[in-house]
Design a protein around this nucleic acid. Sequence first.
DNA 1: CTAATAATTGACTTTTACGTAAAAGTTCTT
DNA 2: AAGAACTTTTACGTAAAAGTCAATTATTAG
Lengths: 130, 130
Amino acid sequence: MQVNKFYTITELTREFGVSTRTLRFYEDEGLIHPERRGRTRLFRPADRRLIQEILRGRRIGFTIAEIREIIQVYKEPPGEMGQLKLLMKRVDEKREELRRKRKDIDDTLIELDNVEEACLGRLADLGVGT
Amino acid sequence: MQVNKFYTITELTREFGVSTRTLRFYEDEGLIHPERRGRTRLFRPADRRLIQEILRGRRIGFTIAEIREIIQVYKEPPGEMGQLKLLMKRVDEKREELRRKRKDIDDTLIELDNVEEACLGRLADLGVGT
DNA sequence: CTAATAATTGACTTTTACGTAAAAGTTCTT
DNA sequence: AAGAACTTTTACGTAAAAGTCAATTATTAG
């Protein structure tokens, strides 16, 4: 009973709007480990979710290396004290960075509002002039 | 009376933590237009503010082309109706994108909280085990 | 079974955003 | 005027993250 739901690589590329090359690249980089039937890749739901997270990380500007690092922690937090503390520091820095980025986004959203207003004003002018 | 405050290129590189190459690159790309005294660049406060905005755009993942486009609008919103509407559509899309990105950041912040918790748990274990 | 379709692999290319190095000009200081 | 410290221009280099292409396999429909 084939209950195990598998995704093919093209199903996922379509769902996420990425190329097969991209997913294979992520595999080469050790971010995902789809199963194989022969040489064909079979992606499980867990792989799919991981890909979602990878793409999310990518969207907010994480590098492959950073994403890999976060994934590592999920798989197994380091067993050594020093490593752990170092990791926590890194995590803290990342959070700071993300908060700054959030602020940048908020500011830019406001700026885009202004741009829109400028456009509307301009539109009104044009409308009147016609 | 030299009231006009000018910044040298290195002053700005120090303030913003970028290289001279970066600022010259932005000039080549038409993002900024510092004055010249001879061949030396002189940056005015307006240039400085513009650089701030460029770097902010960079931080949130805008490409040079996108940043240039936004700057253009500030300088002169397009005079033609069709252009204007197109621009407004683009602005709207950008805003959507930024909202999504903000959501990505929020989600990731929560995830980093989890990572930290995992670390703390691990730390406790190690502490007890010792 | 065979043609068509899909997937894999490996090599090479592209794009973006600068880095780097060389050679020469400019300015300030002593 | 000479040296130090900056700057400029030109040109080539680089890293990250894929894209593209070609040559092979695998799988599946008919």
